[in-house]
């Protein structure tokens, strides 16, 4: 698959502090790419380098096939984590100004702007000043600023912060729609449930190093722990539990609704899920059987802890 963005061996130092240490990532075209990492890991440094706000000390970046050049800013839309607009400038004027700075003509920007304003039902905000808008309203304007010039690559840094659930959903749908229309999206966030929901690919950065990247599903495979949750019907739960305990590594799980015995069983090397089912089936009636798949959150915590 073609990559819209390729970052190769990028290093960035601020004085004695290393912000990025030999980081490489590849963002496939038309995908949503989650850029994850704890606070201060170097995500923002990387995003700023992609946006050409700062230059890397070494390493190369390609947008499509071309080496990143100043004119590429027109193909990139960036929603920074710290939002901001000119407080005393009117909404319409402001968006037009920022769009023109991205290289759009005034008439083109105006046309697009009307389209987005109608879509978000905010046409009457045109001559309001930003300081008269609520935080969520200003966020909507900022979202429009980011996408107005139809960039090939969109970079969202915590796009849902500051939105209520309804508007967060609206923005999420717009992001998905933009992807369907062919844009590629880099998505930096701490909210793991939205990573789970949206991202096809992820990269995890911790302490200036990339410690993990790839397709989210592949990573999940990699982080499988072979742990299963099972539910068993039994009249004498304690006897059954101690019986299973002799055979498998087992612990009690939370109580369930139909009052069955819930267990978490870790399979050792060589044991398969079929072995487990067969064994349990002989013992009792099975009400529940699932593999515990690590969530993005678990992977995040585990990978960061391992990087220690």
């Amino acid at each position: 698959m073609k990559n819209i963005l390729t970052v190769e061996n990028v290093c960035k130092n601020y004085g004695n502090f290393t912000a990025l240490n030999n980081v490489s990532i590849a963002v496939p075209e038309g995908s949503i790419f989650g850029l994850l990492g704890p606070n201060g890991a170097g995500k923002t440094s990387l995003i700023r380098i992609i946006n050409q706000i700062t230059l890397p000390d070494s390493g190369t970046i390609y947008l499509g096939d071309e080496k990143l050049q100043p004119h590429h800013i027109q193909s990139i839309g960036y929603l920074p984590e710290e939002r901001g607009l000119y407080k005393s400038m009117k909404v319409g004027e402001q968006v037009l100004y920022l769009a023109q700075l991205k290289g759009m003509s005034k008439t083109e920007a105006k046309k697009k702007l009307l389209y987005w304003f109608e879509k978000f039902e905010i046409t009457d905000w045109w001559s309001k000043k930003i300081q008269e808008l609520s935080k969520g309203m200003a966020q909507k304007v900022q979202f429009i600023v980011t996408v107005l010039h139809s960039p090939k690559l969109l970079i969202f840094d915590e796009p849902f912060s500051g939105f209520d659930p309804i508007n967060a959903n609206l923005i999420k749908d717009e992001i998905l729609k933009l992807r369907d229309e062919g844009a590629s999206i880099i998505f930096s966030t701490h909210r793991m449930e939205s990573v789970e929901e949206l991202c096809e690919y992820i990269a995890l950065i911790d302490k200036s190093n990339k410690i993990l990247d790839g397709k989210l599903n592949d990573i999940k495979q990699q982080f499988r722990t072979n742990q299963f949750e099972v539910g068993l019907l039994s009249d004498n739960k304690e006897v059954l539990f101690s019986e299973i305990e002799t055979k498998f590594k087992v612990q009690k799980s939370k109580a369930s609704i139909n009052n069955d015995l819930r267990l978490l069983i870790d399979l050792k090397n060589g044991e398969t899920s079929t072995d487990l089912i067969n064994y349990l089936n002989n013992k009792s009636q099975i009400t529940h059987f699932t593999e515990i798949i690590p969530s993005a959150n678990d992977i995040f915590l585990k990978a960061v802890a391992n990087n220690g």
Partner: peptide
């Protein structure tokens, strides 16, 4: 200072030098 405190600066310098 206004551009800095209102945080618009990052949006602008992703468009201009």
């Amino acid at each position: 200072i206004e551009e800095k405190t209102s945080r618009i600066i990052e949006v602008i310098i992703s468009s201009v030098k």
